[in-house]
Design a protein around this nucleic acid. Structure first.
Lengths: 183, 183
DNA sequence: TTTGTCAGTCAACACTTGTTGACACACACA
DNA sequence: TGTGTGTGTCAACAAGTGTTGACTGACAAA
């Protein structure tokens, strides 16, 4: 197995740090330290801190092979939330969006990036915009309640209660009827 | 009308800044500047930046006069979200929680603060912990989708579509049955 | 050997951060 | 008159920020 290149080491360390703590809360020296690499190389290889952040975004922010039916979509996310290891796919991407969305420096970037993915992938297979918006709202809400607030009342990830709660909320979102009051 | 005291001016400016941009993204000099007050007075009156932040928390983080029935609770939040002016009550408090929850410095503080309010107020009137957790998950998700992501598909605040979407999701959360698969 | 290129090291830069202490002023009390 | 006391001003501090440029060393091509 080849030694990863210096740029790769930097990008990997940057992704871990940025996605966990947010752009403004991480310094280039922390990243360089974690990657065991000199700080100056960040500016050399990526043009600066911002360039390094963008490089972490290009690494798999998309959802590949999305199911084409709505029930499949629900079960996919239930699975991802229930059993996701700590990797670069969702829900890590959702979490990183949440952490960086309010940042002055990178907020506009990540929000635009997400809206693109939303309309191009999720909203397309759901086919109904108000339902699709509610669907991702449920996704984000569940993530906030469990991953950041650790609310009592949410089941343990992997438990039947946990899966049922998320599934219930997602199906409810897809059942929304814009034309009916209290739809 | 009396001129507000210097401490009040600082606390007001701090709340606007902290709650909008997050603790780490705001400097004491910015706050002092907005309050038209010397920076050093922050340390004098509040003991430092952290003390100033805590002072903003003590200002109305609680939900007063919560309805005792579940339907009333839903309608209260639908109203608040639909017509809330920019003030110190929810959903501003929810938004500020979202922005600061991941901060290393103040995250633990605001999360503990919220969990206290959750169990003592919301969970109590709902009476069912898994339902209550889903309820606030829906609340947060809706807020993220609309207020920070501005997702297309969410209606304009104040419109019937907007109210119906939020109401639908909240009622669905309260209808969750932990004992039934796909509850 | 000489030359050129790429990778990495190191010190320094200009700037911002939160905080502190010395100082000046105004007002009340003796 | 003096003497505190509370309030605000100002300059400075140490620490941390992102970025830059000069430098060394390794390796390949001429």
């Amino acid at each position: 197995m080849d030694e990863p290149s210096t740029a790769d080491k930097l990008r990997d360390a940057a992704q871990l740090a940025f996605w966990d703590n947010g752009y403004s809360n991480v310094s280039v020296r922390q990243i360089a330290n974690a990657a065991q690499v000199d700080v100056a190389l960040i500016s050399r290889y990526f043009g600066g801190k911002m360039g390094l952040f963008e490089a972490t975004l290009h690494k798999s922010f998309d959802l590949d092979n999305l199911p084409e039916d709505r029930d499949g979509l629900v079960e996919l996310f239930v699975d991802i939330f229930s059993y996701a290891p700590r990797d670069t796919s969702s829900p890590s991407a959702l979490r990183m969006l949440l952490i960086n969305a309010h940042d002055d420096a990178v907020g506009p970037l990540v929000r635009a990036r997400f809206e693109d993915m939303f309309t191009r992938q999720v909203a397309r297979v759901i086919g109904n915009l108000p339902q699709a918006a509610l669907f991702v709202a449920a996704l984000f809400g569940f993530m906030v309640a469990e991953k950041t607030l650790h609310l009592p009342g949410i089941g343990e990830p992997g438990s039947p209660l946990y899966a049922n709660q998320l599934r219930h909320l997602l199906h409810a979102a897809l059942a929304f009827d814009p034309d009916v009051p209290n739809g």
